[in-house]
Design a protein around this nucleic acid. Structure first.
Lengths: 103, 103
DNA sequence: CCGATATATCGATATTTTTCGATATATCGA
DNA sequence: TCGATATATCGAAAAATATCGATATATCGG
C-alpha cells in the first residue's frame, strides 16, 4: 500500500487526467462523435448541429483543446478543430502501460 | 460530419464515459495510486491515508466501483477493493480502437 | 474605413458534484 | 443479546462546472 496520498500526481497522469475530465462530459462526447475520420470542423458547424448556445460550444471546445483531444487552427474568421488522434493514442498507451505495470 | 448530435451515445461509449468521469477526479486518482500491484484494500485503510472524511472516501469508492475501475467484496465487517485491471484494459482497448477507426 | 461575420470572453444564474457529520445497517466478539 | 466496529446512506452546505445572452476582438469584403 502506498501511504503517500498527498504526493504530486505523476506528470504523465496529469495530462491523462485532463483527457479524462474532457471526455467525461456527455456534450463533449457528442461533439467528438460529430467528427468524421480526418475531418476538420469550425465552431459554427458544431454549434449548428448541437443543442447548445454558441458560447457554450466554444467553452466545451476550449476544454477539449486544452486537454489535447482536439487541435485547432484559425483560418480567416473561422477556427477549425480536428481530433488529435496521435495525442489520444499516446495518452491511452500510457494508461494501458500504467495498468499493466503498476496496478 | 455527423449531424445527428442528439442520438444515443453508443453503448460501449457509455461504459467508457463512466471510467472517464471516475478517473477525472484528483482524489479518485490518488485513491487509485494508493493500490500496489494486485493489492486489496478496505475502506478504512484508504480513509486512513487520505485527507478526506470516511464517508467521502466511501462516496468516491462507490463511483470507482460503479465505473468498474475497482472491484469489491465484503469480508466480515470490512469491504475490500481492488483495481480491476481486466476491465480497464478492455475499456482502453475499445477507446484505442475507436480512435484508430473512427476519428 | 465601415459594416458584417466568426469566435472568444465576461458576468450572472442554474445545475451538479463534493464534502462533512449524523444516522442507519450489518457483523463480530464477549 | 449487547456493545463495539466497519461501512453505507442521508441531508445540508460549500465548491465547482455548465449555461446563456451580452459584449469584446479579429477578420473579411466592399
Amino acid at each position: 500500500m502506498n501511504k503517500n496520498y498527498s504526493r504530486a500526481i505523476p506528470e504523465d497522469w496529469r495530462s491523462m487526467a485532463a483527457v479524462f475530465v474532457a471526455l467525461g462530459d456527455e456534450h463533449r462526447q457528442r461533439i467528438l462523435l460529430t467528427f468524421e475520420p480526418g475531418e476538420r470542423l469550425n465552431v459554427g458547424q458544431i454549434a449548428e448541429v448541437s443543442t447548445l448556445a454558441r458560447s457554450t460550444v466554444s467553452h466545451h471546445l476550449k476544454i477539449l483543446r486544452q486537454a489535447g483531444v482536439l487541435g485547432s487552427e484559425k483560418i480567416g474568421k473561422e477556427v477549425y478543430f480536428w481530433v488529435d488522434k496521435a495525442w489520444l493514442k499516446t495518452v491511452f498507451a500510457n494508461v494501458a502501460g500504467y495498468i499493466e505495470h503498476s496496478a
